[in-house]
Amino acid sequence: MTQVKLDPVEQATVKENRLQDTKELKKSHKKPNRVWQDMKKNYSAYLFLLPKLILFVLFVAFPVVWAIVLSFQEYRFNGSIFIGLDNYIAVFKSEAFRIALKNTLLFTVVTVPFSVISALVISVMIFGLGKISQSFFRSAFYLPSVTSMVIIAMVWRWMYNYDFGLFNYFLSWFGVEPINWLGQSATALWALIIMSCLIPFGTGIIMYLASMGSISQSLYEAARIDGANSIKQFFHITVPLLKPTTLYLVLLSTIGSFQVFTQIIMMTGGGPGSSTETLVHLIYKTGFRDFEYGLASAQAVVLFVIILIFSIIQFRVLRHDE
C-alpha cells in the first residue's frame, strides 16, 4: 500500500480541516444543544405535548416520586421523620403482605392467561363474521370495559348470593347444595377469579380484531396452496403475527390484575379471614384506615418493583423478534 505524500502547506490544511471536523463533531454530540435544536425545530409538536406533559408530571410523576420519598419516612402532619429502610423491613416481615402477595399472584396467574386467550378466541370467532354482526359483537364484548366495576361487582355479588343468587339457582337444577361462594375461604378468592375470567376482556378483543385486519391475506392464500388447514394457519400465521399485540395485552392485563381492588372492596373486604386480601387492598387499608402513609408507600413501591420484574420477564419472553 503506497502512501501519498503531501507538501507542508497541504498537510497544514488537512490538519486544520480535521481539527475543525473534530470540533464540530464534539459540538454536535453536546446533548443539550441537540435537544434544544430539536425542540426549536419541532416546537409546535412540543407545544401540543405540553399540556399532557404538565398533567403527567403533576398527577403521575410527582406522586410516584413523592411515594418513594414517603416510603423512607414515618409520615406525620407536623413533620415527617426519616426512618431509612424500616418501612421496607416491616413490609417483608409482614404476614399480611405475604398473604396478600400470594393471593394476588394466584389471581394474576389464573386470570391473565384466561383473559388473553379468551380474547384471542373470541376475536377469531368474530373476525369471520359479516360487518354488521362484527360491529354488534365488538360493541357487546366491549360494553363491560365502559361499565363501572362497582356496578359489575354489585351484580356479581347478587349472582353469588347464597339464598337467591343465580349460581346457586343453577346448581339447584342438578340437585347440588347451595354454596356460600363469598363466605368461605375455600371459595371466595376463586369466586372473584371466576368473575374476572368471565367478564370479557373488551380492550383485548378490539385490539386483536384490529391486528388481525392488518395481516396480509396473501399469507393465508400461500398457506392454503401449500395445504395448510385452518388450525395450522391459525397457529403458524395468526398467532405469530399477533405476538406484539399479545405482548401488549399480557402486560396490560398483568398490571391490571396486580392492581385488583374494586371487586375486593365491594364484594369481600378481603375476607373471610384474609382469604381475598390483595396487595392494593392492603395498601389502601394501611394508608387510609391505619393512616400509615410511609408503610403504605413502601408497600406500593414493592408492588411497583414486582410489576416491573414481571413486565420485563414477559417482554423478554414474548417480544417480537425482528
Partner: peptide, 11 residues
Amino acid sequence: PETLGGSDVGG
C-alpha cells in the same frame, strides 16, 4: 342461616 357471620350488612 348460612350467612350468619358473613359480611353482608345490607343483606
